[in-house]
Deep mutational scan, measured.
Amino acid sequence: MTFKAIINGKTLKGETTTEAVDAATAEKVFKQYFNDNGLDGEWTYDDATKTFTVTE
Rank of each mutant, 00 (worst) to 15 (best):
M1D: 09
M1C: 12
M1G: 07
M1F: 14
M1L: 12
T2C: 14
T2F: 11
F3D: 02
F3L: 02
K4Y: 13
K4L: 07
A5E: 03
A5L: 15
I6S: 03
I7A: 08
I7G: 04
I7T: 04
I7M: 10
N8H: 11
N8Q: 12
N8W: 13
G9M: 15
G9F: 15
K10T: 11
K10W: 12
K10E: 08
T11G: 11
T11D: 08
K13R: 13
K13W: 13
K13C: 15
E15F: 14
E15Q: 10
T16Q: 11
T16D: 02
T17D: 04
T18A: 07
T18G: 02
T18H: 04
E19V: 15
E19M: 13
A20G: 03
A20V: 03
A20Q: 06
V21R: 11
D22F: 03
D22T: 04
T25C: 07
A26Q: 01
A26S: 02
A26T: 01
E27C: 14
K28E: 07
K28P: 01
V29K: 10
V29F: 15
V29N: 07
V29W: 15
K31A: 06
Q32K: 13
Q32A: 12
Q32E: 09
Q32G: 05
Y33A: 04
N35S: 14
N35L: 14
N35W: 14
N35G: 11
N35M: 14
D36G: 06
N37F: 15
N37H: 14
G38W: 09
L39S: 04
G41P: 05
G41R: 06
G41K: 04
G41I: 09
E42A: 09
E42R: 07
W43M: 07
W43C: 02
T44N: 08
T44A: 10
T44I: 08
Y45S: 01
Y45F: 05
D47I: 08
D47R: 06
D47S: 09
D47T: 06
D47P: 13
A48R: 10
A48Y: 08
T49G: 03
K50I: 02
K50S: 04
T51H: 01
F52W: 06
F52V: 01
F52N: 00
V54S: 02
V54C: 05
V54F: 15
T55V: 10
E56N: 06
